[in-house]
């Protein structure tokens, strides 16, 4: 054994060199564009086109400028409100549905689950035109209702939660049931606290998905006061595309919140994907 290890030592260390080179190279590719954009967002107009960075001239004025002179503050608030409402309800509604499909025995359960799997195959764009017509009938186009209410559930996340609840033992819940605890209390007091990793995954996917979504908000928000950040940034870029230092500041306002949330929840996120049977 020992000699085999020593014999193998050389090729392994060459492999290590290749591994590290690849790892670092792709880290540069993944982060480079962000870093360059971030630096540019702190440059004054005269420096924007230069490939060099003069640290003494860096300024936050691009940020204060687009916050005060353009509706970026409004758009940021809109994005926060919409993403918070959508994410909160998604977590509740998807987890409850996933729990019912995993744990409770009720008529029609099999059929509903099969229908969910079938509907996951249908691209969202198929229902776009009728949904838009429906929302305009409700008077919800260009309103927060239209931006939130149709998006309060997710087929994919229901599937994810069902898989997760199936993977954890149910003995605790059965014991509580025998003690006479109601289902809703069992769900909130026992099942949900155990679902941390799956909830983190759901939280990150839903929040980032909604925060970044562009197609629907661009159709549904027709006045700038209802724009979310991606729609706002697109319209700002469309008009002021030569002001790169300000455009890049807008990019950073749109980008940084989801990255920070990911950094906070990332440990659980990767665990959540691993345990919720996403890969089966």
């Amino acid at each position: 054994m020992e000699t085999a290890k020593i014999k193998n030592k050389k090729p392994i260390s060459l492999g290590k060199v290749i591994l590290y080179t690849l790892a670092i190279l792709y880290a540069v590719i993944a982060l480079g564009p962000f870093i360059w954009t971030l630096i540019t967002s702190f440059k004054p107009a005269a420096e924007t086109a230069k490939m060099t960075v003069d640290v003494s001239k860096l300024t936050v004025s691009n940020y204060t400028y687009i916050w005060t002179k353009f509706p970026f503050l409004r758009w940021t608030l809109n994005s926060i409100i919409v993403a918070a409402i959508v994410t909160g309800f998604n977590i509740l509604i998807n987890s409850m549905a996933g729990y019912a499909l995993a744990r409770l025995d009720f008529p029609g359960k099999k059929l509903i689950f099969l229908l969910i799997l079938a509907m996951m195959m249908v691209p969202g764009q198929v229902v776009m035109v009728p949904t838009y017509m429906l929302l305009s009938k409700f008077g919800w186009v260009d309103s927060f209702k239209g931006l939130t209410i149709p998006f309060l559930y997710s087929l994919f996340n229901i599937f994810l939660m069902r898989q997760f609840f199936l993977s954890i033992p149910k003995s605790l819940e059965e014991a509580a049931l025998i003690d006479g605890m109601g289902r809703f209390r069992i769900f909130f007091k026992i099942a949900m606290p155990l679902a941390g990793p799956a909830l983190s995954t759901q939280f990150i996917l839903t929040f980032a998905g909604n925060w970044n979504s562009f197609l629907w908000p661009s159709l549904l928000a027709s006045t700038p006061e209802h724009y979310t950040l991606p729609v706002g940034l697109n319209s700002f870029y469309g008009q002021y595309f030569s002001l790169w230092n300000q455009v890049t500041a807008g990019v950073m306002i749109l980008t940084i919140p989801t990255i920070i949330l990911f950094l906070i929840f990332q440990k659980n996120f990767i665990k959540g994907i691993a345990t919720s049977g996403l890969k089966d």
Partner: peptide, 25 residues
């Protein structure tokens, strides 16, 4: 875990932001 996190970060980014970043680059 550092590399894993770094590689995932672009995935968190809005397609609109990515498009603008690439047009800039």
């Amino acid at each position: 875990s550092f590399f894993r996190t770094v590689y995932y970060i672009p995935t968190q980014t809005s397609a609109v932001a990515v498009a603008v970043i690439f047009m800039f680059l």
